[in-house]
Amino acid sequence: MRPNSLRHLGLAATIGAMVRPVEATKLTKKFGDFVAVNGIDFTVEPGETFSLLGPNGAGKSSTMKMVSTVSPITSGSLTVLGADPQLDGRNIRQRMGVVPQEDNLDLELTVRENLVIYARYFGISWAAARALSNDLLQFAQLTERADAQVESLSGGMKRRLTIARALVNEPELLLLDEPTTGLDPQARHLLWERLYTLKERGVTLLLTTHYMDEAEQLADRLVIMDQGSIAAEGRPSELIASHVSKEVLELRFPAHPDGTRNRPEGLDRHGFRVELLPDRVLVYADDGEAALQTFRNNGVAPSASMVRRATLEDVFLALT
């Protein structure tokens, strides 16, 4: 990409640094009797990447739909770019980008037409929209496919085009709902690199994910959501430090012929917190090797063992 292209993106965020992009207080969303989001509090600071992490059904997408001004809040309060999404939806959307969970590109149009037509909705002139589309195609690494029909693109390309489309209005705040779900590893890493570029330019990112590695890669701060509530909040490293040990020992035991695992009883009686998963046992310990020795000394004989650094996945399993 050209060195100067899209440099303007971060500028708006810098100027708007006095306003918090998102402030939610006791934010609640109900569908009939079902409480999708249960009184959550969170704040996104200018220029940071903030992540909502949680399993399917945790309330992430409902939260995103409220922030994107599409879905009315049930109770609590929510301000987006300093304004009320209910009353000022149009003005907020003028300065925000939205990458939905499902790509909703216009399949009847070419790659470039998708960008140009979308820019028109933001009041950008045809000439400016065409010029902008060149920059965005470079950003999305789709310049060679500019005149291709969208239908012919791979999943990763469609995702990058959807993200490029969300940047047509130089948003101060970019919402990304499960940006890499369904992509292969190469496509994911390329997308992370693109998002990291935006972050370096100062664009505020609010993203949901159920991938721990994604949150660890991108997020400055995150909340872990479960069943509509926030289970934990902090920086990735803080969450790991405060909710799990430094290291994790993974133990595997042989399977019975009937499919159950031949696990010894009372694995939690050796002074460590353990998590029993269907395929393996996690042992939280600051020194994994020492923990393994303790188990062996007590007659526990796993068929395989591994010591690794704790990740957000462990925090997630510990909390949910």
């Binding site: 994107s68 959307r93 790509d103 909703n104 216009d106 933001f122 489309r165 209005n169």
Partner: peptide, 14 residues
């Protein structure tokens, strides 16, 4: 099904 109307509603369009 198409999602193009949802996409348009992420712009200033009401």
């Amino acid at each position: 099904w198409e999602g193009t109307y949802q996409a348009a509603l992420a712009t200033p369009l009401t």
